[in-house]
Design a protein around this nucleic acid. Structure first.
Lengths: 248, 248
DNA sequence: AGACGGTATGCTGTAGGCAGTCGACGAAAA
DNA sequence: TTTTCGTCGACTGCCTACAGCATACCGTCT
């Protein structure tokens, strides 16, 4: 299938130009990947993406390289860019790293988060619970990410927060398609976490966060473990041999 | 049997590299930064770098963006690239993150490193000690990085290893100019670390690694703390009506 | 003399184009 | 029929060129 054909099915939203084109293209491609319009292993042809987004190849190239640095796509020299294929093993390792980073963040947040920080945490948590109660899955997932991001921010360590954010984005991509459950239990744990942070109990905060992320990890592995193993997604370049005309 | 099958069974060591120009430029600029030829806060003009390296602006642009993603340079939209200015606070946070990542790596390495891994660790350690004894500071620093990288590799968690490597590169940049001391003590700790890994004692390995990286951190903070604070290096674009390069 | 606006400069961001390279397909030979 | 070589096509990587813009300099006004 051609990218332009995919564009026909969905909204071929041209990118607005608030900032540099590169930034916009990065977000657009991330969105295409997360939403599943670009499937793992798929060959990303620069010219097609450029045409799809209504820009030239250069911003697309630069975006792909930045995305490569963050693990979204794999760049094979001379061959091009391919959407990264999340292995089960890699997902497990990534979730382990997330556990590590966020546990430390929680510990630091318990030390350094002030009243204002706790207040913001409570607000997000309340919104998340409301989202779950109204079956707003996407909203709950987004709020979950926001809350975790806020915890890392409150750690006071910006390097740590940045790294955790980077990892969290990938986690979210891997996790979203299988995160359709584990609704309220997760937010109970969030509440307990905030209590610990408010109390300044770093050990408890770290413990709760560790168990919380491990629950997520277990949930993920359980769900993914039952899936059939994908066939070898060997990256091949030429996705479009002939057939310029018909889609079908 | 196909060659590709053979390649699959053995180590799939690709040919060194098709050596894209971008990769070369990245390494060249990193080297220029580490060596101090490009100073923190300096405005990196694409065309000048291109001329200096004998390439066009495009590979330079792409290199700068990748370097931006790794924290080497800051990219101000519409203004250009500036060599990142390492703050004391940021260095501290970065070293804290390194402690976190490498401690976990050591713990995992104690679990999963086999005899072969321990042997390679011992080899590196011996070389490092030899380098220190012969006052080969650069060699010792390089071997130190290699040893830490090997520990993260032996953790078995590639995501963790990759992240740690990324952090370690920046640490090395920050740390190199002030790492002219702390020679043999560091390698004694390395030896103890390897002993713990060989014994499979994850708690001890983690403890040693934590203390080891904290020693490094303390050493760094002590040395940097005495330095005068640099004046505000406000990024300005047009720094140079003439030529790049200062070696004149 | 100091402040403000106009102009000039050079840099960035983007587009378009060309050569090199890799993979695939087809033909020829065993 | 299977294997191997030659050719073709497409895509990537790189270079060059142009437009937009932010900054710096300078003249003028207050």
């Amino acid at each position: 299938m051609l990218l332009s054909d995919q564009a026909g099915t969905t909204a071929a939203a041209k990118i607005p130009r608030p900032a540099t084109l590169r930034e916009s293209v990065i977000e657009a491609i991330q969105e295409l990947i997360v939403s599943g319009q670009l499937k793992p292993g798929q060959h990303l042809v620069e010219s097609e993406l450029a045409a799809l987004l209504g820009v030239s190849r250069q911003p697309v190239r630069e975006a792909l390289q930045q995305l490569s640095g963050e693990g979204w796509v794999d760049l094979h020299p001379g061959q091009g860019a391919f959407v990264h294929v999340p292995t089960l093993e890699e997902a497990d390792q990534l979730l382990a790293v997330r556990t590590l980073l966020e546990t430390e963040s929680a510990r630091l947040a318990a030390q350094y988060a002030g009243e204002e920080g706790v207040r913001r945490l409570r607000t997000l948590c309340a919104q998340g619970i409301a989202a779950v109660k109204s079956d707003d899955v996407d909203g709950a997932v987004a709020l979950n990410s926001e809350l975790h991001a806020l915890v890392t921010d409150l750690s006071g360590n910006r390097v740590l927060a940045e790294l955790a954010a980077q990892v969290a984005r990938r986690v979210r991509w891997y996790h979203t398609p299988v995160a359709r459950q584990r609704g309220m239990a997760s937010w109970d744990e969030h509440t307990a976490l905030i209590d610990a942070i408010e109390a300044g109990d770093e050990r408890r905060a770290a413990k709760i966060m560790r168990e919380h992320t491990e629950h997520t990890r277990a949930s993920y592995m359980e769900q993914r473990g039952t899936e059939p193993v994908e066939p070898a997604p060997k990256p091949v370049r030429r996705r479009r041999p002939r057939q310029l005309g018909g889609a079908g």
